[in-house]
């Protein structure tokens, strides 16, 4: 699997996938729907799928001395790697906003989602949805990806809208609390996001392997 991941990183990946990890820094922006940073990271991953398709990567990979399932596992491993890099960068920004920058006026006046553990949980949810909707959808044909990507766009924007609206619901203000106030609730949302991410990724990977086994290249 290490070899497949290296192949993904050196031959199949678009430079934009790496560059778009930097969108995690959007979490610094006050008055911005920072959860969109997760969407932009996924957009960077989409660029790799587009580049790989143009480069006939799937045929090359399928001819390597590995089972067909490893072609799918390689793509998932690459996506998870990029997603975790973006998550770690977001977590660092979040920690800064929760500590050193917690009293900054720009953040205190923020009407939108704050960078806190709940935000990180929603980020994991979006990454999980990308893996389940887009990556799995791509392996239905190994070629077409427009429909799965449109489906992912719609679902991810709905998640962003719900996440942004949640803390305006009476009684749920704690979801958007500053600093370490209500850290327990927010940590629970982060844990739930992480669990959903792992489940969506593992289940969709298995499903994608089954789908790809039936594809004629």
């Amino acid at each position: 699997m290490r070899k497949m991941l290296k192949k993904e990183m050196t031959l199949s990946a678009s430079f934009l996938s790496y560059l778009f990890i930097a969108f995690a820094l959007l979490a610094f922006c006050p008055g911005y729907p920072i959860l969109l940073s997760a969407f932009f990271v996924c957009l960077g991953l989409f660029q790799s799928f587009q580049y790989a398709r143009e480069a006939n990567d799937i045929v090359y990979s399928s001819l390597l001395p590995v089972p067909k399932a490893d072609v799918v596992r390689g793509k998932y491993a690459f996506c998870v790697l990029i997603e975790l890099c973006a998550f770690i960068l977001s977590a660092i920004v979040t920690l800064l906003r929760m500590t050193a920058l917690s009293e900054a006026a720009a953040y205190r006046a923020n009407a939108l989602m704050n960078a806190n553990p709940a935000f990180l949980g929603f980020m994991m949810l979006i990454f999980g949805l990308f893996n389940a909707i887009f990556v799995r959808g791509f392996f239905r044909t190994g070629y077409y990806f427009a429909k799965p990507f449109v489906a992912f766009i719609i679902v991810s924007f709905v998640v962003v809208l719900i996440a942004e609206a949640l803390h305006h619901v009476p009684g749920l203000e704690a979801v958007n609390a500053f600093g370490f106030e209500h850290a327990g609730l927010q940590a629970a949302i982060l844990a739930a996001g992480a669990v959903v991410f792992v489940l969506l990724t593992l289940v969709s990977e298995k499903s994608a392997i089954r789908l790809f086994e039936k594809v004629d290249l």
Partner: peptide
């Protein structure tokens, strides 16, 4: 495949 990659890089992988 990989029309824009150097042969050296394709072979290395």
């Amino acid at each position: 495949y990989y029309p824009k990659k150097r042969i050296r890089d394709i072979v290395a992988v």
